[in-house]
Simulated assay, not measured.
Amino acid sequence: MTDITARLSAPVDAATLDRLHRRLEREAEQAGLVDVAYTIVDSPVGKLLLAATPRGLVRVAYASEDHDRVLDTLGRQLSLRILRAPGRLASAARELDEYFARRRQAFDVELDLSLCHGFRQLVQRHLPQIGYGQTRSYRQVAELVGNPRAVRAVGTACATNPLPVVVPCHRVLRADGTLGGYIGGPEAKTALLALEAT
């Protein structure tokens, strides 16, 4: 009995833990037990949490949003069956790397827009029409979606965009050309606009 206790209490090396997690990830995915897969990637604007459902990328979150809180929210809104499963997010991670390396100007990953509804989703569906290196005002986006008087609602849709960077709400500015709000903060918005300007 003491031998078993000693074995169970012995520290486990990182390589073993990683191997066991990859096995858990693989078997959970094969059994259809993962409703939301996530990973965290490094980027020039800080660590980004990427989350996906079987339908596509559902969330990109900045560290300033508190990744643990984001995962809790995803658990309440989508499913408690959440697992760190980088394999499901490999394409999204690769496309983000290419974007930050200036080798990609538009994203091709499948998106799951189920975290937003109604007018907000309409705005977020139109944001990718703002080309790389271009900007539009909140008013211009309101006109683009067919509701020119909905300037504030466009601002709210951009501020609550669950897929920043990939759905480019950072390209929307105030009418006077100043930044306006951004879920990742003004430094991240400035960095993204600077990246696309060169």
Rank of each mutant, 00 (worst) to 15 (best):
V145E: 00
R125M: 08
V151G: 02
A150T: 09
Y132F: 15
N147R: 15
G146I: 05
Y138V: 01
Q140H: 09
G146K: 05
N147H: 15
A153R: 12
A157C: 10
S137C: 08
Q124N: 11
G131A: 15
G155T: 11
G133M: 10
V141H: 01
A153F: 08
H126A: 12
L144M: 15
H126Q: 13
L127W: 01
T135C: 11
V145N: 01
Q129G: 12
V154S: 02
R125G: 07
V154T: 06
R149T: 14
G131I: 06
R139A: 14
Q124C: 06
L122M: 11
Q140N: 04
H126V: 02
V123H: 01
V145D: 00
R149G: 14
G146E: 03
V145L: 01
R136S: 10
R136I: 04
C158K: 06
R139I: 01
A157G: 06
A150M: 10
Q129S: 14
I130R: 03
V151I: 15
V151F: 07
T156N: 11
H126M: 10
G131H: 14
R136C: 05
Q129A: 14
A153V: 03
A159F: 08
Q129N: 10
Q140W: 04
Y138M: 08
A153G: 10
A157P: 09
L127N: 04
Q134K: 14
H126P: 00
P128H: 08
Q129D: 11
R149M: 09
L127E: 02
T156D: 13
G146W: 01
Q124A: 06
H126I: 00
N147S: 13
Q134D: 14
A157Q: 06
V151L: 06
R136F: 05
R139P: 01
T156K: 12
R139C: 01
R149V: 11
V141F: 00
R136L: 12
T135K: 04
G146M: 03
T156R: 13
Y132S: 09
A142W: 09
Q124P: 02
C158S: 03
A153P: 00
R152Y: 14
G146T: 03
Q140V: 03
G155P: 07
G131C: 09
Q140L: 05
L122Q: 14
Q140K: 11
I130S: 06
V123T: 03
Q124E: 15
C158V: 15
R139T: 14
Y132W: 15
G155K: 10
V154H: 03
T135Y: 04
N147V: 14
T135W: 09
T156H: 13
A150H: 07
L144C: 03
P128T: 05
A159D: 13
Y132K: 10
G133P: 02
A159S: 15
P148S: 08
L127H: 02
R149D: 11
L144G: 00
V123W: 00
Y138A: 12
P128S: 07
Q134L: 13
A153C: 02
